[in-house]
Write a protein that binds this DNA or RNA. Structure first.
Lengths: 194, 194
DNA sequence: TGAATTAACATACAGGCTGTATGTATGCAA
DNA sequence: TTGCATACATACAGCCTGTATGTTAATTCA
């Protein structure tokens, strides 16, 4: 097995870390955090528990890494849609919301980010992650809209948090009611017009 | 101890059940579901694990009972405030929100209902509990407001769910930002006026 | 009223999971 | 090439959950 051995340490490290993250993401998405054991994860990743605890402090830290990655993916999806944004600030907010919903189509992602993460990591830690990725975009969108005089001037960050809660909840709605939720969402956004 | 023995079975049952529920509520509130073991609970209640598993199918069922009780308490607090409701439907909605915030002052209650419950019981089960207690009031308030022509006509249940999400999120805000959140909340409610 | 039945627990046990401690092999640096 | 650190693998201890079994007291029924 000399061929395998001729890898640099950084390569080995990156590979096992990646295997662990993808295996964990898959199982956390399917069964949730509490119902997924570390033996399951390492078996799916093809490594041992020793590797897991070498790379992550504990099971929660692994979960946090998965959450971070999912969050980044969502943010990236929204950023990508941001290239073709409407000029009207309110319309832009709604477009951003649609991009969010598109990113949240995946049920496993909803489970990880919206159901398990708050309980496992705590609201505070999750808000901190959120602040690093998604929230900033939303805050900017709202501030732009306010500066343009399109919506009422209100405390920006709290408003952004509330919007986040609305989007999270709407994303969690059953598919067949999705349309109604979107309608109600749109009305609430429109209601903020100055 | 013949004096103790002269209790009917229903009395014994009710007492131990009550002891278990109060002990569990206290520990779940302080440490959360995952960090609270059944040995801790029965020790605090002064009974044995046998009693716990005689009264509840498992740890999750005990937690569900605690959630149910907390939910009922919140609903009762809102109902009580409902006696002195403003005639304006929108003002009534805001008043109901304030009653909700008052009921949610307790940090342990927030942890149980807003942080742990969704992950432990799942959104679906939690929605079902919610439908039995709090949601109905909110739905009625919104429908009244719509019928009175005070707010726009929108799908009622989705709107109620979204409102619930807003209230939950606002209740979770740090104390020093509570005022800003309330301001933003009020603006969103006002925005729905017809 | 007393014998049988059942409810309400208490005790004991088996299995699994988490985190840690220890052992080993490989890349790397001097 | 020798020593060291990194990247794991293995082994172990402790705890926790759920269940199976045993015991006591209340209830029922003949």
């Amino acid at each position: 097995m000399q061929v395998e051995s001729r890898r640099t340490q950084a390569e080995r490290r990156a590979e096992t870390r990646g295997l662990l993250l993808t295996a964990a993401r898959k199982l956390f998405a399917e069964r949730g955090f509490a119902e997924t054991g570390t033996p399951d994860i390492v078996a799916a990743a093809g490594v041992t528990r020793g590797a897991l605890y070498h790379h992550f402090a504990d099971k929660t830290a692994l979960f946090a890494a998965v959450v971070e990655a999912e969050h980044a993916a969502v943010a990236q999806g929204i950023e990508a849609a941001g290239d073709a944004m409407p000029t009207d600030p309110v319309a832009a907010l709604l477009a951003g919301g649609n991009a969010f919903f598109a990113a949240m189509r995946d049920e496993g992602r909803r489970r990880i980010l919206l159901v398990d993460a708050p309980a496992v990591l705590g609201r505070a830690a999750l808000d901190e992650i959120d602040a690093r990725h998604g929230l900033e975009t939303l805050v900017c969108g709202l501030r732009d809209a306010m500066d343009a005089g399109a919506i009422r001037r209100l405390p920006v960050e709290p408003l952004a948090q509330l919007f986040g809660a609305l989007f999270d909840r709407a994303a969690l709605a059953p598919v067949e009611r999705q349309a109604e939720f979107q309608q109600a969402m749109a009305a609430m956004v429109e209601g903020l017009r100055a």
